[in-house]
Amino acid sequence: MNNEMRIDMLRGMMRIRAFEEKIQELYLAGYIPGSMHLSTGQEAIPVGCCMCLREGDYLMSSHRGHGHVLAKGGEYKYMMAELYGKKTGYSRGKGGSMHFAHVAIGVLGTNGIVGGGIPIAAGVGFASKYLESDRVVVCFFGDGAAETGAFHEGLNFAAVLQVPVIYIIENNQYAISVPRKLSDRLEDLSVRAAAYGMPGETVDGNDVVAVYDAAKRAVERARAGGGPALIECKTYRWHGHHAGEPRDGLVYRKQEEIDSWKEKCPIRRLKTQLLEEQVVTEADIDAMQRGFQQELEEAVAFANESPYPDESDLLRDVYIAEE
């Protein structure tokens, strides 16, 4: 792995972290309506996976999807505007945090229904195969989604169709408050891949290079017509299930546990390495961080200045006019 790529990885993760921290602050201050789910601590997974993708590739995501959209090329300002419920947002203010899509960069949607994107991704992969394109699909979801019927049916059908879909489990240890040990009897969720006749592997989801290596193998295989794969990335969400959750997740988790995972912060890990190897300097990192802060201020201003949808937009896009 060359240094340039590792710097890109660091930048990508910092870009997500800066966004999540900023919107958390804005949410708690009452500027962002509704509800949203933060991916702070899980940044290595979208960055490691999306660095294996080409522009035309597809991405489907979950309710915890800000990082995925950003890693695929989403811009702060249109995301911020969407979070504010403004007409200039990616989904014209109709979707909010759980329903980002940006078709132009291949983001076919985040999803408010846990596991909802899994069978859909199989179909997107089918379209790619049917049209003889070499576009692959990456589908992100959490460990909770791995317990749904949609997971079983979606992975099985993807395998039967031999479509180019890479399923990524972001195992952050909890389905809202329910810990892994109450959800199934498995140590590694990736063993389920064998049940569908596809390759599966489990990686350290806080090691961006490990995520990248695993995703690259799966993407190359899928692009060459080798069919779907399942990758489990073990990680941890630093905050509660949703922004503003009472005691920020401490109702069902211990502070020591959270602290121990913060020790494994994917950003600090790569940053330390790059500093030690003198690939970057503290000044470089500060400059990156300042750049993100500046861009975020602009995004907030853009969101603030943008209009809300008109009341007449309420019924717009329920149906497409028939020709």
Binding site: Y58, L108, G116, I118, P119, I120, A121, A122, G123, V124, G125, F126, A127, S128, Y130, L131, G149, A150, E153, G154, N156, F157, A158, V160, L161
Partner: peptide, 21 residues
């Protein structure tokens, strides 16, 4: 002919439509 998986039959149908079919 699909497996007996109604969630996948409809869900993947949706995906295929999103993918241009």
């Amino acid at each position: 002919d699909t497996p007996l998986s109604e969630i996948a039959i409809v869900g993947a149908g949706i995906g295929a439509a999103l993918g241009g079919l």
